[in-house]
Design a protein around this nucleic acid. Sequence first.
DNA 1: TCTGGGGTCCTAGGACCC
DNA 2: TCTGGGGTCCTAGGACCC
Length: 395
Amino acid sequence: MKPVIFHVDLDAFFVAVERVVDPSLIGKPVVVGGSPDGRGVVTSASYEARVFGVRSAMSAAVAKRLCPEAVFVRGSRHLYGKFSRQFMDVLRDFSPLVQPASIDEAYMDMTGTDRLFGPPVEAATKIRSRVTNEVQLTASIGIGESKLVAKVASNVAKPNGVHEVPAGASAAFFAPMPLRALPGIGPKAEKGLRMLGIKTLGQLARFEIGPLRRSLGVNHAESIQRRARGIGSAELSIGQGAKSISAETTFGEDSDDMDFLSGTLQKLSERVGVRLRKSGKFARSVSLKLRYHDWETISRQVTLPAPADGDATITTAGRELLRKAMTKRKAKVRLVGVGVGNLTEQVGQMSLLEDVASSGPGGLDSRLSGTMDKIRTRFGHDAIQRGQSQAKKRE
DNA sequence: TCTGGGGTCCTAGGACCC
DNA sequence: TCTGGGGTCCTAGGACCC
């Protein structure tokens, strides 16, 4: 049986949620994102704002210049998470195979559901009306024989529509499209391909592999060309959870004050730690990210002696990386970030020789952090703080 | 115009082991 | 005293996506 994959994508998600909460925003140009007076960028713009050229990822200051009458909204992760969960729950009523791809989109394997919901387009209509009724948001759905085709099709369907690409018609569907329509071709790849005279996916699909390899690298060239021909996987990956967890912040003003940087790093580490413990996993590595005033961005990583989930372990490792990095390049910094990676589900057998009393799983740091999580859940995040972060409150 | 925050995947080099 | 080849782990950086 030919696979039937849906890609379901909420329309202008952040803006749409803000309008559910505050209906006075309906019909106005709305920009969700950072402050236009500081270093904010646009996360999402309503269609009314897009008319003025406002796009996501552009600086909020520029957006304001393009569209002075736009309403700027800060946005709340928490709120978006709530809507996202409701949305995913609706999808799971239609198929057990749902793969969330981000906060506002998911793939569904709808193969063989005809008898339950009718042919694909009819099923898509049912899903969309349930999303509208229960989550108060509109969704667009792309239907194809692979995740790749479904994803591109949902973009064609936008806003508030359905687009089906029949099995076997994928290559023809892609052929006239511009390069950037293919997920995986960004600004760099587009530039390289344009220099070869390639403008459409059809041209890319037929192009000689030799020059493509020289432009994109051997592996990338072959995978991009395969995708341009409409060939993609229909396999959904379900329920693996995050592979890394990180938190970062950009300062209002660049700083090279070690006390300040170190204090910020501790707060970020605690935020990461809370999410890590919530996931039930343990980290085998800790990473630091620094962006200097001149936009040079570095990352440094260490592997921990044993998997850990405690705040102090993350903070200590991050501090050590920070100290080394700032010794090597002492310049003002605009962004600092901390992350954990190589997450493991289970804790291996601990060697008796290993000193894990303080940092390891079930060790002092892990248990203390867990206790702090419980207190924070009951009384709020600021109810309790570990030693050193109190003196350094100056964000 | 001046660039957020959260992720994923890939590449490439060096260390280390057999 | 002139050095192979394969595999795995670790680290750094970059492209890309939402």
